[in-house]
Every structure is written in C-alpha cells, then in structure tokens.
Write a protein that binds this DNA or RNA. Structure first.
Length: 468
DNA sequence: ATGTCC
C-alpha cells in the first residue's frame, strides 16, 4: 500500500498562493489523508482552492478554507531585535560582511551568531559567518558548496624525498582532476555511490549519474591539492605524531555538482515557503518539522559525505602512487550545518566558511599557496560558537585580483617561497588573500595550533583569462 | 562554487 505525501511543490503546482495555508495543508494532508490516492487528494485540493466557502464546515479543511477566504494579510515574516554576536578580528573585516551578519541575527529563528576573522560578504550569510537557529536550516547559511572541506594526510615519506620534484608533480598531474564539470575518465570506486538516499529522493535520483562521474574530482575556484611539509609543534600531540617534520598531502574541495544542485533546489524552495523582507530573502529557511526541511537535511548530509569521499579517493590514489603509508589524517567540513547542544539547547549550527572548533576537536585552517596552513585544536569557546576561521579570507575579489595583480608578481612570490604551481589563476594569487598570521592572531582564544603546513607543489584549476 | 536555467 502506498502512502500519499505532498510537499510545498505539490501545492505550488496546483496553483496555491504562497502563505500560511501551505503549512496547514501539508500537515493536514500528510497526517490525515495519507491513505487516499494522490489523485483524490489533488482533486480535493483543487476544489478547495476554487471554492473555499464550500469547506468552511469541513472537519479537516475548515482552517485552510477560512485562511483562503480571509482578506489577504501580508505573510512577510517579522524580524526580531538583533541577537548580540561576537566578531573576531573586526578591524580586518569588510563592513558588508558585518552588515550581513547583523541581518542574520534578526531572523526570528536565530538564537546565536558569531563572525570569524576571515569573514567576507556572501549570499545571505557572509562567508565566515556562524549562525545557530532553533529547528530551522538556511540553505544559504550552509553555502552553495555543501560539505566544502579540508583533508590532510601525514605520510611516512622522508622530507628529503621532496627534492624529487618531478615525481611529486607527476603524481598531481596523473591523480587529480580539476575544472567545472570535470569527470574522471575511469570512474572511482567508493561506497558512497551505494547510499540509499540516491534512491529515496527524486532530486538525488536525478543527480546520481553526475555524482558518480565527478567522484574523486576537485572542481575549480579556490580548490587545490598540494604536497608540502608539516611541522608538528605540539609537545604532547594527542593526534599521535611526535614533534618534527613530515611530508603531507593537503586538499580543499567540496561536493561538486551534486551539492551545488541540492543547494540551488532547496534555496529556491525555501524562498517560496519562507517570505522575508526585501534584503533578507537569501536567508530563507526550511523548518525541520516539514518534509522539505527533512529532505534538505538528508540531501545535505549525503553531499557532505560525498565531499569527504572525493577527498579520500584523491588521497588514496596519490598515497598509492607515491608508495607511501598514511600515518595520520585530519579533516573537517567548513560549509555545513550541525545539530549541536549549546547552553543546554539543541540548535542548528550553520558554519559557512568556518572550522568546527569544539573543545579538543582537530581541524585545518589553510593559508594560501605560499602561506602556511595550520592544524588546530578547538577550545570550545562559546562566544565563537565553537568555531574558527576557514582560512585567511579574501581581501581582493576575483575580478579585482585579476585586474590588480600582475603575472610576474605572482611568479616572483611563488619563486620566493620555493612553491611550484600547476594551473591556478591570478584570482587565486597569494596577494588576493589576507595575511593568515593576522587572522590566526585574532582567534587565539578559539584554537590552539598543533602544527604548521607549508605548501611545496600545488595544483589548482586553470585560471580564467585576465580582465582588463 | 557550479558547465552560468526559473
């Protein structure tokens, strides 16, 4: 026997006006009409829309009928007075990022917020923004690249082997694939493609082939795969490595087309279901008690695991090519939402370009292709919502970097740091980023540094043409 | 970030 369930899209397709009647009908239909056929339910909903007056005494549908008959009242959600939030490294943050955060803490679902030291403006929530809400998830609070993350593998290769430049560069050429829409020529094998969610949600069904083809690729933008040296400095390393220098592999990428499509789909749905005032619409949320909210959570979780799988495929290939053994791995999402308990309340904590930094939690904060990245251990500070920055943060937009930075300057900085780059454009030049050391100083109370990673051989997507 | 599509 099949169970009939409808969602917001069903109502939109039937021609229902957006508003409070949506939530009423979803509850009524999905709890009381699930034994009826979808055809019967659709017919009934059509009649209700055409002649609501005929249903005002209906035992199930009187409330939505009356709502449809009521004079149209504005259904724009009212904002609350702002929840105070901490800003780390405020003097170094674009005012527009702070303005966006000021907006986010006025949502009626917001319980707490924090802005990280690498913050810059984004869609809705700024990059570097952390927002804790009550039972609501904001697709643009997670970001377009769901599950964008870092992965560091510390290997048993001798540091002196890095002198063998060609073998490391060749491995990067052979085992990594970059570019928008890029796929592997030989499909990667990983348990993620067996996940049942790909069969349970229509959207995920449609994205399955794309996900399989792009598994193990890196994408474009600020994503990279690089070899380098990690210097472990912590005297009592709880991560099982004695202080000293090691060869390490570091990657930065996300959930590729899969996550991007999920983000696009549910952001659109959120905007249709959650009506915010002008200027706030990118912050539209999905109630986790609705089918749409649950679907997003399921899809987001899958995209996060898929992003992790992509890193693991890349690392396994490179480790095998170099004949190395994995000593220790550290990895973390920095675009995601988590269910966490803060001050005794379960909250939805969105980190959009922020590293989880709960007490004792390890994470990676990359610098740039010539600046060090850091392995950190969170302190769990409440003011920072148990978070830290996800990198240095941009100081120049992509277009500004292309216009301002000269190719010779970029070459010189790479040479000065002994870094070899495959691909990479002026928009990713070190000069486009803030000074990572300034950013780290602004968050000393949020994270302790356990080790410092210096890039040596870096691969990124080919940069676009320079702009005039 | 994504083959730039609501």
């Amino acid at each position: 026997m099949s169970i009939t369930q409808i969602n917001g899209k069903t109502l939109l397709d039937l021609g229902y006006p957006k508003g409070p009647v949506f939530k009423m009908l979803l509850n009524i239909v999905n709890t009381n009409f699930h034994n009826r056929s979808l055809e019967d339910v659709s017919m009934l909903l059509k009649q209700l829309l055409i002649d609501p007056a005929a249903f005002t005494e209906d035992s199930y549908l009187s409330a939505p009928a009356k709502a449809l008959l009521a004079p149209k009242k504005s259904d724009v959600i009212e904002l609350q007075s702002p929840v105070p939030f901490s800003i780390f490294g405020e003097s170094n943050i674009d005012v527009n990022a702070i303005r966006q955060m000021n907006n986010a803490v006025r949502l009626p679902v917001t319980v707490a917020g924090a802005l990280m030291a690498d913050a810059h403006p984004g869609y809705g929530l700024p990059i570097g923004g952390v927002l804790a809400t009550d039972n609501a998830v904001i697709p643009y609070g997670v970001g377009v690249d769901i599950g964008c993350r870092m992965c560091l593998s510390v290997l048993d290769l001798p540091v002196s082997s890095l002198e063998n430049k060609e073998s490391y560069l060749k491995a990067l050429q052979k085992d990594t694939v970059f570019g928008a829409g890029a796929t592997l020529s030989k499909k990667a094998d990983h348990a993620i493609i067996e996940r049942k969610e790909f069969k349970e949600l229509n959207l995920l069904k449609q994205l399955y082939d794309k996900a399989v083809g792009q598994l193990g690729t890196s994408g474009s933008g600020n994503h990279f795969v690089e070899w380098g040296i990690i210097t472990v400095t912590d005297q009592e390393p709880e991560w099982g490595l004695a202080p000293g220098e090691y060869v390490a592999l570091l990657s930065h990428s996300g959930s590729r087309g899969l996550g991007a499509q999920i983000a696009g789909h549910y952001t659109k749905l959120a905007k249709e279901l959650c009506h915010l005032p002008e200027g706030f619409q990118h912050l539209a949320w999905l109630d986790l008690n609705t089918q749409e909210g649950q679907e997003y959570w399921t899809a987001m979780t899958l995209a996060g695991d898929y992003a992790a799988a992509c890193h693991h495929v890349i690392h396994e290939k490179l480790i095998k090519t170099m004949g190395a053994t994995l000593l220790r791995r550290v990895e973390n999402h920095h675009n995601f939402a988590w269910k966490e308990v803060h001050n005794g309340q379960e909250l939805i904590v969105h980190r959009k370009g922020a590293t989880p930094a709960g007490k004792g939690v390890l994470g990676i904060i990359p610098g740039s292709m010539t600046a060090p990245g850091f392995v950190v251990r969170g302190t769990g500070v409440t003011a920072g919502l148990q978070s830290a920055s996800h990198g240095a943060g941009r100081v120049l937009s992509r277009s500004a970097a292309k216009a301002k930075i000269k190719p010779e300057e970029m070459k010189q900085i790479l040479a000065d740091h002994g870094v070899t780059l495959i691909g990479g454009g002026l928009d990713e030049a070190p000069g486009a980023y803030k000074d990572i050391n300034t950013v780290m100083k602004a968050q000393t109370e949020l994270v302790e540094v356990l080790g410092e990673f210096k890039p040596k051989y870096v691969r990124m997507a080919d940069g676009g043409p320079a702009e005039d």
